[in-house]
Design a protein around this nucleic acid. Sequence first.
DNA 1: TCGATCCTGTAG
DNA 2: CTACAGGATCGA
Length: 269
Amino acid sequence: MPELPEVEAVCRKLRADGAGRRIVQARIERAGITRPQSASWIEEAMTGRRMETVERRGKNILLHLDGDLVAHIHLRMTGNLYVVPDVRFRPVAARAWWELEGGKGLIFEDPRALGRVHVHRAEALDALFAGVGVEPLADAFTVEHLRARAKGCRKPAKLFLMDQKHVAGLGNIYAAEALFRAGIHPARGIGGISAARIASLHAAIREVMHEAVASAVLAYAAPGRFAEAGSFDTAVYDREGGPCRRCGRKIRRIPQGGRSTYFCPGCQR
DNA sequence: TCGATCCTGTAG
DNA sequence: CTACAGGATCGA
């Protein structure tokens, strides 16, 4: 499910209907999601704590608890984190859940169970996230910053964008969409791209992220059959064989880093 | 830098 | 049945 925009939407929803409550009971249903930490230790550490604030760093969700503890949750491919009105009614794929004061439940739902739940001391956070790059929607993400990171880097453009240490939060969909808008072939080395094109890539990343956050927030606010109304309209992702909306040529799919990359061979060079 | 790995579900 | 899935990490 989640790249930065979806994780941002999840966080906003959590703040609206979950944060600020005390955790009465914590339960990890699938021990693997806490590795290498012990599931029972996490249950004990979180029980009785109050959730004070919800923070997002890239695709990482941080639940700041009292007692200087932080729950770190990563949704990976199929995770979701949300509040339900009654903790007794949980989905089958609830890999972890927390009973909140008043009877509501915080649910970590993840069919593939690839997501992660960890607990850290607050003072360990900066070291833990030292390798996470700049937020694409923050002021610190400038054209110069992107140029500096790209300079001398031989990675293919798409893999560069998906590497969380350069820019935090892009994933398979939005990296492909940003490259399409900037007219850059995903396999080109990022370091060999002109300064002018890096500037348009920067603009494209911000555009895509802004639009996607708006869509995701809408989709998460009004779930159900109206979720479609808030979904991001992709130009290339998952459109193999379809016509490019700009030049009409067929969208292609190539493997990169073990994933599928979609692009237009006419518009992206 | 590639491939395997972690997992389960779904589409073809 | 195989291929693939909005992620990240690890070892060869």
